[in-house]
Design a protein around this nucleic acid. Structure first.
Lengths: 232, 232
DNA sequence: CAGCCCATCTGGTCCAACCAGATCAGCCGA
DNA sequence: TCGGCTGATCTGGTTGGACCAGATGGGCTG
C-alpha cells in the first residue's frame, strides 16, 4: 500500500486524530497498526516530523503536536498533505516570499548568467504555448520565480525559497484557472525578464514588487486581512 | 554514552569518513557499530539527515552525501557539529541574513509592541553590564537581532532567521573577543533601538544595513571574497 | 580481453523483547 | 467525602535478529 512517503499521510493523521486540547497524538504502536507498518517505520517518520518542529516526543509520555512553531519546511509538508493550514502562517509565508523575491530580482539582475536567461526564455515559451492553447498555467509560474532566485547564485537562498512553492502548489490551479489572470501574469513575467536582461536592478525590483502585490492581494482575499499590525 | 543527539556526531562522522570522490558513507551497520547504537537508531537519524537534504539514501546501494544542496537547517547543524562548512555556503547564508534583517528592521519599526521594546531594553542592559564588567558579549547580540525579527510578528520569518544564529554561534566569541568591536556593536544596537522606538522605518533600515555591513566584511575577511558575481 | 554470473553487501522492513519513567484509576486512611 | 498513596498499565527509547530484493563487484568463462 503506502509503500512510499509515509510522512504526509502520517502528518495528516496526527493532525486529524490528536487531542484538541492537549495536542496529544495516538501512540507509536497505534500509528503503526493504523498504517499497517512497523513501529520502526513510524519512529523514523516521527523523527523527521520532530526535526521539522511539527511534533514533540516526550519520553514515556507521548507525542504532541507543536504546530504553532512549525518551520517553513513543515508548512510545505502540510500543504502537500492537504492539511488545514493556519491562515496566519500562510499570510506570514506570503509576506516572507515577497521579502525574498523582490531582493532576488535585484540580485538576479546583477548576477544572472546566460544559462539563467536561457532557462527563463524556455519557461516563458512554455507559458506562451499553454496560453495560446487555451490551457491554464501549471508549473511555469513557479519555475519562472524560482529560476530568478537561482540566478542570484545563492544556493542557500534558493533552497529556502523552494519550499514556498511546494506550499502554494495546490492552490495555483485555482489561481490560474482564470485565463485573464494567467495572461496578465505572463505579461508581467516578460517585463521582468526584460529588466533582468538589461541589468536594470531598480526596474526589476519594482516590477517584481508590483507583480507580487497581485499575488498577495489574491491570498489576502482568500484568507482575510493581515495579522496584528498595531493600529496605525 | 551518547545518550542524546546522535545527529551532530553522526553528521560529523559521515562528513569525515565519506569517500572523497563518490561521497559514499559507511553503511548503516558500520555506523551503528561505530557509535555503539542499534541500527534502528542510526536509521532514525539518517531519516532526519535525509529530510535535511544532507544525505541521500539509495536502496540496496548506499548512503551518499549531498552537501552542496544542504538546507539552512543543515547548515546550522553543521555548525553545531563543528563541521568544516563550505565557505561559499557561509557567504550565501550571510547574504541571506542581510536580506532578512534589513527588511526585519523596517517591519519591526512598524509593528513592534511594547513587549518587544521591553525585551530589547532588557537585552541592551545585559550587554551594557557585560561591557562595563570588561566581559565579551555572548548571546546578547543574537538575542537583540532575533528579537527584532520577532517584532515583525511574523513567526515563519522568525523561525527561518533563528537558524543563522545557531550557525554563527561558534564564531561569535571570536568576533566579540575584541572589546572595541563589542562596544561599537552595542552602540549601533542602541541607535537601532532608538529608530525602532521612533517608528522611523527608513532610519531603522539604514542603520541595520550599516550595522550588518560590518558583520559581512568581517566574514568576508575570514572566508575570502564573494562568489561568482559576473565581473562588473 | 570482454562479458557473464553468482556471492556478497546494502538499504528497507518487520517482529519480539526489555527498560524505566510517566500516568492515572482505584484503594486506603483520615 | 476527600486527599494522598500505590501499583498496574501505557509510553517512548533502544536493542538484536531476521528476511527480502536489488545493486555491486570480483572472479570465472569463453
Amino acid at each position: 500500500m503506502t509503500e512510499k512517503n509515509l510522512l504526509p499521510e502520517l502528518a495528516a493523521h496526527l493532525y486529524a486524530s490528536s487531542s484538541a486540547d492537549t495536542g496529544r497524538t495516538p501512540s507509536e504502536r497505534e500509528l503503526a497498526e493504523h498504517f499497517s507498518v512497523s513501529r520502526g517505520q513510524v519512529r523514523e517518520t516521527l523523527a523527521v516530523l520532530e526535526a521539522m518542529r511539527i511534533v514533540e516526543r516526550r519520553a514515556k509520555s507521548g507525542i504532541f503536536l507543536t504546530t504553532r512553531t512549525a518551520s517553513v519546511e513543515a508548512l510545505a509538508l502540510f500543504a502537500k498533505a492537504g492539511l488545514p493550514l493556519d491562515p496566519i502562517q500562510i499570510y506570514e509565508a506570503v509576506e516572507l516570499r515577497k521579502i525574498h523575491e523582490i531582493k532576488a530580482a535585484e540580485l538576479a539582475s546583477l548576477r544572472a548568467t546566460e544559462e539563467n536567461f536561457a532557462r527563463l526564455r524556455e519557461i516563458l515559451q512554455r507559458s506562451e504555448q499553454r496560453l495560446a492553447a487555451g490551457e491554464p498555467l501549471a508549473g511555469e509560474d513557479r519555475d519562472f520565480h524560482l529560476e530568478i532566485v537561482r540566478a542570484t547564485q545563492n544556493t542557500v537562498f534558493y533552497r529556502v525559497c523552494s519550499v514556498y512553492y511546494a506550499m502554494s502548489e495546490r492552490r495555483l490551479p485555482i489561481y490560474f484557472s482564470d485565463p485573464e489572470r494567467g495572461a496578465r501574469s505572463h505579461g508581467e513575467h516578460l517585463q521582468i525578464y526584460d529588466a533582468l536582461q538589461r541589468r536594470d536592478a531598480n526596474l526589476a525590483q519594482a516590477l517584481m514588487s508590483m507583480h507580487l502585490q497581485g499575488v498577495e492581494s489574491y491570498w489576502k482575499g482568500l484568507i482575510g486581512d493581515a495579522p496584528g499590525s498595531p493600529g496605525g
